[in-house]
Each structure stands twice: as structure tokens, then as C-alpha cells.
Write a protein that binds this DNA or RNA. Structure first.
Lengths: 338, 338
DNA sequence: CGACCGTTTCAAAGCGCTTTGGAAGTTATC
DNA sequence: GATAACTTCCAAAGCGCTTTGAAACGGTCG
């Protein structure tokens, strides 16, 4: 079933049908409804290739998957992509995945010269991320999920990691905690830097010194959480609270606490950052975990929205969003034990 | 630069140029060279949308990413996709990623009704995987990486997991081991079943009983490896060898051995399955790990090749490949200590 | 030398959609 | 009742490629 057939069925011209389906204003509400209903009834789906050829748009957004550093390859990225996909599928836009081994530059270049994607999304930026300069130079529209230092104007969306960890720290301090440990993501990523900054400044703001021994980072896995938490627990005096960069790490931290015979929420406090995974609910744990909460899937959805704006002609320098992060206090935080 | 321009430049018709570039036989070698060179010099890239419209092919292969069970989301899958991408990019075919939450059925249906992909690749099948029947019914070409029980004829490529673990077990038995532990992937996956089968049958073939306590499974992570190995080491008598389903798990197993004060290759033996990751080389470990080796990236490349065949009209029932798996003996296996 | 054949090239017709530039049809205005 | 001003619809021209059917060309053969 193609447009022509549908138009014939309806006794309308292709133009009108096309316009009706694409929401142009010059079609009466009545015909629009008639067309929409008929399209559904006949199971009409416009041919993406034809539409792409006619509009000159690829109808696809690119994502590069670096396969030799396995950093992106974690639940966070996939959850993020899920959000992106949710939004893009509404407009029948594809996510085109380009696995890249070794030189990412080459992959981006290929994407830019071909007419295969209208824009790309880049994630998990390092503090100084070369991709921003590269893509600006190539002229391929893109949006950054996160932030990086770069003179080139570019679109980005990020959550307020600094504020989140600042508030969380302040909350713990208010509960009387003085020795707070930070279990962070790898420090070459911007978000980890921001979190550390928020942490340090909140401590400083409360007039507390920061014990460098109580700061650690690594890949955001259960394993890293366990390892770092175990190490911190051997220190004298022990920390009374943990600030943890991901729920995965929180699980490991939890294990370490149990192993050390400590009870969370009574003997020791913890706040973890929650990106909100369908398979990991801090509310259902025992005790429920206090979190700084920001669904990464929502970020994906919004990033998709913005990238579509970009493709539509919005200027990258006008696209900046910094999302506040909510602090959700649950059972895992309590006053310092006497 | 489009085809027309290039043809004009060369003083040829579009037809000839198109044919020259696409390797049709009716173009003389001389013109073909001339065209190819000119195309490169002017940086000509055919517009994928136009080509797709003209050929009626989507020029893309689909992959569904289930986002609520995070099983696929592991380095294995990404490494596999990298292989797929490597092959597909040669023919300028895209990987279109469809994240799917909840009902995958819906996602496949969408893919099938639209003209967005020519075929899909499905991975990590369960023993009875509903996707095979679904896709057969929908008429969307697909290939399975792995195997499953299904009456519907379908294309698949798999490695000989049974043979691999059979050989590995036999090797350990030949070295004198009598108590061998199996650390396996989740048992609802076919490959895990096959591995267990190979293990059991090799033991039986050697006239050895299989201690059910020495069999464990879980997600293929370092963590699971550590947990299972630790548990097995508490048994009396201790196992003298471990058969491990992934290098990730092998790392965890290794940690457990160290924690228990055992030296790998002397006090205890281990063979792990190696899917060959760029960031994980069993040869560089101390001691080097004996493995059953089968690069999953290569499988991806071949699967891509086969899926292209399928799109080209090859019958699914003719596409079955079972790859033998190499046993690489290194320092982690040795005779049973006296 | 003309008929015949294989090679090499071409013009033109799509592929299924969007979009431009008008043409009808309808209502309001004088 | 004619003119203007909308509203609603249409025919036709692309988008950049592939592919069909045929023509031009050079060489071979009777």
C-alpha cells in the first residue's frame, strides 16, 4: 500500500493525503481525520527511503559505540539509548549504531561525509573531549550528553552533578556526619569531576576538612563499590557515611558494609546517585536507599527531542540544559550513631 | 557531488558510471578504473536514501535491544555487534538499533511492517526462544546467533559449545583431575545448556560421577565468578580444577583463588572460555589462562555476511554454521598436585 | 561489402515520497 | 452580482539513484 493507492482509495490527490498525514495546516480537519483513519485501516506506512530522499534528510541519528574502551558499554548507556529510542521512534527516526574500533575520528568522518545520519549524539564526555572539536569542524550536527571544556559552541544537556552531590553532602553533614567517603566514577569523566567538586565545596562550606583518603573512583560497577568501600572501612576512624556515584556501586558498598557487620541506616549512612534502572529500585531495598535521583532515560528522551530541534535548524549555542537533581531521603541515611 | 555531476565530469552517462561503481560486468575494465579513480578524487558517495529507494532495500539490518532485561547488555553483545558492524560497513549497510522496553513482540512487528530494515539479527537465545516463531510468522528475514529449539526453519550460526567444554573437561581429566567445578552462564540460555552437556558427557565418558554441588551458574560477570568459586572452595574435598564460561568470570574466580591462598596452575587448574576481547588477553595474565577460544567478533562478522546472503535471497534453511572451538593450553592448567 | 555478433554506452522510466505554484470552491465585502 | 480573500485541493516537478531496452561501435565472417 503506497501513498498513491491510499489517495486513490480516498478519491484525493497524493498531495492532500501527504499533507493530511504530516499535519500541514492547509487541510481541513474533516479530511485529515478521514485520511488518518483510512491510513490506519489499510495499514499504510510511508516508505522511509522515499521520504528521506524527498526531504533530503537521513531520518536517522547516529551513535558511535567505541568497542575497545568498554566504558560506555554499561547499563547507563543502554538506558540512555532506550530513552533516545523512545522519542525518536515517535517520529520514525532510527538510531544508527556505528561500532568503532580504534580511531573514532575515522568513524565520525564517515558519518559526516555520507548522508546516513542527520546528527549524532555523544555521551560520557571526558573533561577535555576531542569529539566536540572534531564534529564542529566536520559540520555534523551533534548534541553532547554531559559537558566538556571546549571553545567550539555546541549543544548539550547535563544534570547538575555538582549541585546533586553538594546537597547530598550537606544533608549528611546536617545529620552530624563528619567523615564522609566518596565513591566516584572514573575521574577522567566530567560528571565525576563535577560530583567531586560538589562534595568538596559542600564540606568546605560546612567548615570541614576533606580527607583525601576517603575519596576513590573507578568504573561504576558493583565490584568497584565493594573494593573501595572495603578499603575505606579499614581506615581509622571509620567513615560514618558514604556518598556513592551509582546504584551499581551502591550494591557493592552494601555488600562491604554487611561483610564488616555494619547495618545500613543505623551504624552507617549512604546516599547513592540513582539513574533509575527498571531492574534496580532503591525503594525496594532493605533499608530503602536515599538517592540523588535523575532518570537517565528521561535525559535520553530529551536529548532526542533536542537533537531533532538541531536538525530542524535550531542553533547549537542555544541548546543548553542543566537539569536539577532531586534528593530523595530514605532509610539509608540517619544521624551519626552515638 | 552527485552521480549526474560525476557522469558529466567523465563525459559518461549516469548508467555507465553507476554500473562501473557497482561492479556490473558490462563495463570495460578501463572505464571502470577511470570512474573509480574519479569518484575517489571528487569524494563521491552515493546517497543512501536514493539508492535504497531505487533498489527497494532498506540498506540496514536491525538489532533489538531489550532494555528491561539487561542480559544482552554486556561486553559480549557489543563485541559481537562490532564484528557485525565491521562487515556491514563495507557494504555501507547500517545497524539500526531498536531499544525495546517490555514487549519485544511489538518492536519486531514495527520493524516488519515498516520498510526500515531488510533483516534482523537475534542473539543469546533461550532454550525455547519465542522470537524465532514470531519472526518467521512476520516474514522478516533473520539470523540467529546461537541456537534454540524451534520447528520453524531458520538461519543460525553458533559455536560448538558442547564440543568445546567436552574437550576442555577431557583435557582436565587427562591431567588427573577428578573434582572439576563448572562456573557457567545462566542456564536458560542455550549455550549454557550446551556447555553443561559437554561437561557432563565428558565426565561420564571418563567414567566419572558428576558432583552437582560443583555446578553453578549466573550472569557472566567477575562478581558471579568470585561468588561461585568462593563457594566451591569451601567444599570438602576442594575441587582441583575450574571450568569457567567467560573471561569475566575467570577474573572473579582468580580473585577467589588468591583470596583462598591458592596458586593458579600449581595448586589448582582453570580453563575459561575466551570470546576474545580487546581489553582482556588471557595470554598476558600471570599465569596465562588456558582457554577454549572463539572470537565472538568473528562470529559477528560472519553473521553479517550470512544475513546479507539471506537478504540476497538465500534460503534460511540452508544457512547453518557450527563453528569448532579451539582449546588453547596455557599455564593455568597442570596436573593435579600430589 | 553487408550481415552479424559481442561489447560498450546511453536515454529514459521508474522507486514513493514531498513540495511548489496554481486552480477550483467558498465565503465575505462592497 | 462582481471582487476580494480565504480555504481546500490538485497536477506535476523533483529528490538521486538503479535498471530496462535500445543504440552505437568495432570487429568477424561468408
Amino acid at each position: 500500500m503506497k501513498l498513491k493507492d491510499l489517495a486513490l482509495q480516498l478519491g484525493l490527490s497524493q498531495t492532500t493525503v501527504s499533507r493530511a498525514l504530516n499535519g500541514f495546516p492547509e487541510v481541513s480537519e474533516a479530511t485529515r481525520r478521514r485520511v488518518a483513519e483510512s491510513a490506519k485501516r489499510f495499514g499504510y506506512h510511508p516508505n522511509p527511503s522515499a521520504r528521506r530522499l524527498a526531504t533530503g534528510r537521513a531520518g536517522a541519528i547516529g551513535a558511535v559505540l567505541p568497542t575497545d574502551r568498554n566504558l560506555l558499554v554499561d547499563p547507563h548507556y543502554v538506558e540512555f539509548l532506550a530513552g533516545v529510542g523512545e522519542r525518536l521512534s515517535v517520529d520514525e527516526i532510527d538510531i544508527v549504531l556505528s561500532p568503532s574500533r580504534g580511531d573514532e575520528t575515522e568513524t565520525y568522518r564517515r558519518l559526516a561525509t555520507g548522508t546516513r545520519v542527520d546528527a549524532v549524539i555523544i555521551s560520557s564526555p571526558a573533561v577535555a573531549d576531542p569529539r566536540v572539536a572534531l564534529l564542529s569542524e566536520l559540520g555534523l550536527p551533534f548534541i553532547l550528553h554531559g559537558r566538556t571544556e571546549s571553545s567550539a559552541p555546541h549543544a548539550w544537556l547535563d544534570i547538575d552533578n555538582e549541585g546533586a552531590f553538594g546537597h547530598a553532602t550537606k544533608h549528611l553533614v546536617d545529620l552530624g556526619h563528619r567523615r564522609i567517603a566518596l565513591i566516584n566514577g572514573s575521574s577522567n569523566f566530567t560528571y565525576a569531576r563535577h560530583r567531586e567538586k560538589g562534595f568538596r565545596e559542600a564540606l568546605a562550606g560546612a567548615g570541614l576538612a576533606c580527607d583525601e583518603q576517603l575519596i576513590g573512583d573507578g568504573q561504576m560497577t558493583d565490584e568497584t563499590g565493594f573494593r573501595l568501600a572495603s578499603r575505606f572501612l579499614t581506615l581509622e576512624p571509620q567513615p560514618t557515611a558514604f556518598l556513592v556515584s551509582s546504584m551499581m556501586m551502591a550494591l557493592g558498598t552494601f555488600r562491604a558494609l554487611r561483610t564488616a557487620g555494619l547495618e545500613l541506616g543505623r551504624d552507617i549512612s549512604m546516599i547513592a546517585h540513582d539513574d533509575v534502572f527498571p531492574f534496580l529500585n532503591p525503594d525496594r531495598m532493605v533499608p530503602p536507599i536515599s538517592t540523588t535521583r535523575s532518570p537517565i532515560r528521561d535525559a535520553g528522551t530529551r536529548v532526542a527531542e533536542l537533537v531533532l530541534d538541531l536538525v530542524g535548524g535550531r542553533r547549537p549555542e542555544d541548546v543548553h540544559e542543566l537539569w536539577p537533581v532531586e534528593l530523595v531521603v530514605r532509610g539509608s541515611t540517619g544521624p551519626v550513631p552515638a
